[in-house]
Measured scan of single mutants.
Amino acid sequence: CSVCSEPIMPEPGRDETVRVVALDKNFHMKCYKCEDCGKPLSIEADDNGCFPLDGHVLCRKCHTARA
Results as ranks from 00 to 15, higher is better:
47 D>T: 14
47 D>W: 04
58 L>A: 03
48 N>A: 08
66 R>Y: 07
29 M>H: 06
28 H>D: 02
37 C>S: 01
4 C>P: 01
21 V>G: 10
18 V>S: 15
26 N>W: 13
40 P>K: 12
34 C>R: 03
35 E>A: 07
47 D>S: 10
11 E>T: 15
32 Y>P: 01
33 K>W: 01
37 C>V: 01
56 H>S: 12
8 I>M: 07
17 T>R: 10
61 K>R: 06
26 N>E: 12
11 E>G: 08
13 G>S: 11
30 K>R: 12
39 K>S: 11
57 V>K: 04
63 H>N: 14
45 A>F: 06
12 P>Y: 14
50 C>M: 09
33 K>C: 15
39 K>C: 12
8 I>W: 00
28 H>V: 01
11 E>C: 05
66 R>E: 03
62 C>A: 01
50 C>P: 11
32 Y>R: 03
4 C>L: 00
27 F>T: 04
59 C>Q: 01
57 V>G: 03
8 I>Q: 03
2 S>H: 03
29 M>T: 13
4 C>M: 00
1 C>I: 00
27 F>R: 03
22 A>H: 06
10 P>I: 07
20 V>Q: 06
25 K>G: 03
52 P>N: 06
38 G>R: 11
4 C>W: 00
13 G>P: 06
52 P>S: 10
57 V>P: 08
45 A>R: 13
17 T>M: 14
43 I>M: 12
2 S>A: 06
27 F>E: 03
29 M>W: 08
31 C>F: 13
52 P>A: 13
63 H>W: 06
59 C>Y: 00
56 H>I: 05
3 V>W: 03
63 H>L: 03
27 F>K: 03
49 G>L: 06
51 F>T: 09
27 F>M: 12
29 M>Y: 10
3 V>S: 06
40 P>Q: 14
38 G>S: 11
41 L>H: 04
1 C>S: 01
28 H>P: 01
16 E>A: 11
53 L>C: 07
34 C>G: 02
23 L>T: 10
36 D>M: 05
7 P>C: 10
49 G>S: 09
3 V>E: 04
16 E>W: 00
51 F>D: 14
54 D>I: 02
64 T>I: 08
13 G>H: 06
33 K>Y: 02
23 L>I: 03
31 C>G: 01
9 M>Q: 05
5 S>D: 12
10 P>T: 15
20 V>H: 07
40 P>H: 07
43 I>G: 10
39 K>W: 09
52 P>I: 12
67 A>R: 13
29 M>N: 15
32 Y>A: 02
37 C>N: 02
42 S>V: 03
23 L>F: 05
59 C>R: 00
55 G>Q: 05
6 E>K: 05
22 A>M: 11
25 K>P: 00
16 E>T: 05
13 G>L: 09
22 A>N: 07
40 P>W: 04
18 V>L: 13
12 P>K: 15
32 Y>N: 00
37 C>F: 00
23 L>S: 12
49 G>E: 08
58 L>H: 05
17 T>A: 09
66 R>H: 05
63 H>M: 09
34 C>F: 00
23 L>E: 15
36 D>G: 09
6 E>L: 08
35 E>I: 05
19 R>V: 03
56 H>F: 07
45 A>I: 11
48 N>I: 07
39 K>M: 10
40 P>T: 11
21 V>C: 14
5 S>V: 01
21 V>I: 04
20 V>C: 08
22 A>W: 09
41 L>N: 02
55 G>L: 04
23 L>Y: 11
3 V>R: 06
17 T>Y: 15
36 D>C: 14
52 P>F: 10
16 E>R: 07
14 R>A: 12
41 L>D: 01
67 A>N: 13
59 C>S: 00
61 K>T: 13
21 V>L: 14
7 P>I: 13
58 L>K: 03
50 C>L: 05
60 R>N: 15
12 P>L: 14
48 N>S: 14
16 E>Q: 05
29 M>A: 15
55 G>E: 10
35 E>F: 11
15 D>V: 05
51 F>K: 13
21 V>Q: 11
23 L>N: 14
42 S>Y: 01
65 A>S: 12
66 R>P: 08
53 L>A: 11
12 P>H: 02
36 D>H: 05
65 A>H: 14
19 R>T: 09
2 S>R: 05
38 G>L: 07
19 R>H: 12
61 K>I: 13
20 V>P: 07
36 D>E: 09
47 D>V: 07
52 P>M: 11
7 P>D: 15
56 H>E: 05
28 H>M: 00
55 G>P: 03
22 A>D: 07
9 M>C: 14
13 G>I: 05
65 A>R: 12
1 C>L: 02
22 A>V: 12
28 H>R: 00
